[in-house]
């Protein structure tokens, strides 16, 4: 057990002991050497928490689930993408300020960020939000011709079985009724044939434009190894370039939910 882990366990036990939170959402030991989400609700259970470089999954996804909300006020072990998710979810009115206690585990101990101001302040001290490996890959794809890029995505998406793990793992895909499930009219074909998978992934990327926190949890969740995060990160980057807005750092408005009457495109009026 590392010092970081022992600090985290002690913090979790104290928070549960004092009743300031009802559950600590963190990472525990899983099978096959992986980490799995754990929901610690008693001080004695705090020993299940682990923290190391294998903790990748964006745990913010669980904060909006009814089963988790019913447990009471949560603390969440917060890697940077979780912090960005908290800001973006609050911006989208899915979380209230102070609903969640973020626990940032570092070598200097566990920092408890109790409100959005504290979360924002901590985020400001972190490096830029973009996944560096994703940026390299997007540059590679951007250098391709349109036909090459289409071939790349056709090949990748041909393995998609539409299990929706990408959507289920994503903290921003919280809609109770996804466009994919609308059938009057049926916007997106349900079948995992070429059109059905392409339209689903493009729709998802468009809906994440200006909202994606670039955690790449979607790609890690994919059982077919498709780099779906590149679509969302590309859309996110485009919005940032064109509107100067960044998910998880936005003010009260974000690109997908706002417009200006003086926009040059006529359709908006």
């Amino acid at each position: 057990m590392s010092v970081r882990e022992s600090d985290l366990r002690a913090t979790a036990a104290r928070l549960l002991e004092t009743g300031s939170v009802a559950v600590v959402i963190g990472y525990g030991a899983g099978t096959l050497g992986r980490r799995r989400p754990v929901f610690v609700r008693a001080p004695a259970q705090a020993g299940e928490l682990v923290f190391d470089d294998e903790c990748h999954q964006n745990l913010a996804t669980y904060l909006l689930k009814p089963e988790i909300r019913r447990l009471g006020r949560p603390a969440v072990v917060a890697i940077p993408s979780v912090l960005r998710s908290l800001v973006q979810l609050a911006t989208e009115r899915q979380l209230k300020d102070g609903d969640v206690l973020a626990l940032v585990v570092g070598d200097d101990g566990v920092r408890e960020l109790a409100d959005l101001a504290a979360v924002r302040q901590h985020l400001a001290g972190l490096p830029g939000s973009l996944h560096p490996a994703a940026k390299t890959e997007i540059a590679r794809l951007s250098a391709m011709t349109a036909a090459e890029r289409r071939a790349f995505w056709s090949d990748e998406l041909s393995r998609c079985i539409k299990c929706y793990a990408c959507r289920a793992a994503c903290p921003m895909c919280y809609c109770e009724r996804c466009t994919t499930e609308c059938n009057r009219p049926q916007w997106i074909p349900v079948a995992s044939h070429g059109l059905g998978t392409l339209e689903y992934h493009l729709m998802r990327a468009m809906h994440l434009a200006g909202r994606c926190v670039e955690c790449a949890t979607c790609s890690r969740a994919c059982p077919a190894g498709i780099p779906v995060h590149l679509l969302a990160v590309f859309a996110e980057e485009s919005v940032r370039r064109q509107f100067g807005a960044e998910a998880g750092a936005a003010g009260p408005a974000y690109a997908l939910s706002s417009f200006r009457p003086e926009d040059q495109e006529g359709f908006i009026r």
Binding site: V38, C163, Y164, A165, A168, A169, P189, V190, A191, P223
Partner: peptide, 28 residues
Amino acid sequence: GEESLRCLGCGTCAFVCPTCSCFDIQDE
């Protein structure tokens, strides 16, 4: 309920399962 707190509610387990046979009928 306890075990499935961490379940994300996707369809991966059934789709990669060699024996799962449930299907949906769709008209296009």
